[in-house]
Design a protein around this nucleic acid. Structure first.
Length: 483
RNA sequence: GGCCUCGUCGUCUAGUCUGGUCCAGGACGCCAGGUUUUCAUCCUGGUAACACGGGUUCGAAUCCCGUCGAGGCUGCCA
């Protein structure tokens, strides 16, 4: 049974790139009926925070791809392979015997060379135009253990090769690795060592991670082999890029899952978009539910080159998902979003709120836009009276039309304010009197919205309610008189 | 600089393994037209790419070589 994992370090909120890596891992685990594990790599205590760990877990949950094992939101740990935080593993001395083993077998050694000396050598190599390959002295006497770190003795001439699921055959020359640092001391492993030990101890079988780890792979394979652990399969997925084709980062704008959540994107749309970023079936299909993705996903069909994050495409997908929602679901989710994000819609009756959400969902990309759009309904900003005019229709005619419609709106009860009813009733009268629609409906719409572009007057009237609707029409009438 | 990886429309991509059916298909975007009281939606149409140069071959987006370009890594971070 395959076991896969993501191993983020909690040094920031859940990044879009991490989310996609998580998705691919989750898809593979679900499809192969394996396990998806979350391990928190918080060995860098200076930069790691519990708050970020929580955000990562919440983000995964919101996306609908929660881990099977790992720390939970409640602070509990789930799974048989814990602890799932490296900081805790360190406290328990998990790494010590392995570092000891490496030291005893001669694969690792203490090195107390100062940073200054290292920097000097690095600079020297750089100036000479040669690669910096550090070799320490494994047999040095009088080691200053306070200062020393533990280095791995990389073989001098070994070809390291593996078959990557997405990249095919990848080869590295071990000579260029140099003796890299694997631990600060006997209890404090660094990334490359900790990963190997934890992956082995957690029985991880497949490592699906970002391409930025490609050059770490030979180091980890070496350690893995020396420690006698089972071989892993690798899949290095391409990076998500910003508009300028460099690795997606903060300077590119919204890059965290929570930011998209707050903007009101649907998690299913997000998942669909992320999946399409670097993965595709040979057919033209683009819309997949998470369940469908599980069925058809193949690691081998992951793209080799990086993919630019295109928010227009995300918006388009979100709109499609919005439309696919039933009226009831749309109302529920929209309402929930508005309330959670502090938009005050209390003044609206449920009927009005339903119409509002329904109307807005036809014209926005994300729930977040409903809030700002809603405000515009209530704030009737002053508008030029000419705006009320439809083509060359005389002011008197416009005014008469408004009177006619106002009369109808006056007569009917609040309960009959409904977009469809209003539309059929008002249009019927216009037809009867042979009034061109634009001549009457354009002024009415402007009267109600004050804007050149807005939802239909029937929809606005329903959302505003009878009283406000009539008030706005008489306001328009006054404007017309001034002309 | 060194190592590794990648290179099809503006963007995501199909096609590359198993050369011809590809003067390269789809989607998003953009542009134009239509429907509509406006916007949006919807419908129709259009725009636009095999990085470059050699080679192999009857024939190359597809195979080989080189060049150029882009990205990642190059930490006692992960």
């Amino acid at each position: 049974m395959p076991r896969v994992r993501i191993a983020p370090s909690p040094t920031g909120p859940l990044h879009i790139g991490t989310a996609r890596t998580a998705l691919f891992n989750w898809l593979y685990a679900r499809q192969q009926e394996g396990a998806f594990i979350l391990r928190i790599e918080d060995t860098d205590t200076q930069r790691s925070f519990l708050e970020y760990e929580q955000q990562i877990i919440e983000g995964l949950q919101w996306l609908g791809i929660p881990p099977d094992e790992g720390p939970g939101i409640d602070g509990e740990e789930y799974g048989e392979y814990g602890p799932y935080r490296q900081s805790e593993r360190m406290k328990q001395g998990v790494y010590r015997p392995y570092i000891r083993q490496l030291l005893d077998s001669g694969w690792a050694y203490y090195d107390d060379t100062s940073k200054q000396e290292l920097d000097r050598q690095r600079k020297e190599a750089e100036e000479a135009g040669e690669p910096f390959v550090y070799r320490g002295d494994p047999y040095k006497a009088d080691i200053d253990y306070e200062q020393a770190v533990i280095r791995f003795r990389a073989p001098h001439d070994k070809q390291i090769m593996w078959r990557d699921y997405v990249r095919g055959e990848v080869t590295f020359d071990s000579h260029l690795l140099g003796d890299f640092v694997i631990a600060k001391d006997i209890d404090t492993p660094l990334y490359n060592l900790a990963v190997v030990i934890d992956d082995a101890l957690m029985d991880i079988t497949h490592i699906i991670r970002g391409e930025d780890h490609l050059s770490n792979t030979p180091k980890q394979m070496l350690i893995n082999e020396v420690l006698g652990f089972a071989k892993k399969k690798y899949a290095h997925i391409p990076l998500i890029l910003g508009q300028d084709k460099s690795k997606l980062s903060k300077r590119h704008g919204a890059v965290t899952v929570s930011q998209y959540r707050e903007q009101g994107y649907l998690p299913e749309a997000m998942i669909n978009f992320l999946a399409l970023l670097g993965w595709r079936e040979p057919d033209d299909r683009e819309v997949y539910s998470p369940e469908e993705l599980v069925k058809v996903f193949r690691l081998k069909r992951i793209q080799k080159s990086g993919a630019v994050f295109d928010s227009a495409k995300l918006d388009n997908l979100n709109v499609r998902y919005l439309k696919a929602l039933s009226d009831e679901e749309r109302y529920k989710k929209g309402n929930q979003f508005l309330k959670q994000n502090g938009w005050n819609v209390d003044r609206l009756s449920e009927k009005q709120l339903r119409v509002l959400i329904d109307v807005e969902c036809q014209r926005i990309h994300t729930f977040g836009e409903i809030g700002t759009e809603t405000q515009r309904f209530w704030e009737l900003t002053d508008y030029p009276s000419e705006r009320l005019q439809w083509k060359n229709t005389p002011v008197e005619t416009i005014s008469a039309h408004l009177d006619l419609l106002a009369g109808m709106l006056e007569e009917r009860s609040e309960e009959t304010y409904d977009p469809e009813l209003l539309e059929t009733d008002l249009k019927a009268v216009l037809e009867e009197r042979e009034i061109p629609r634009g001549e009457a409906l354009w002024p009415l719409r402007v009267a109600l919205s004050g804007r050149e572009a807005s939802p239909s007057p029937f929809e606005i009237a329903t959302i505003l309610g009878k009283e406000e609707t009539l008030r706005r029409i008489s306001l328009a009438q006054n404007k017309l008189k001034e002309v």
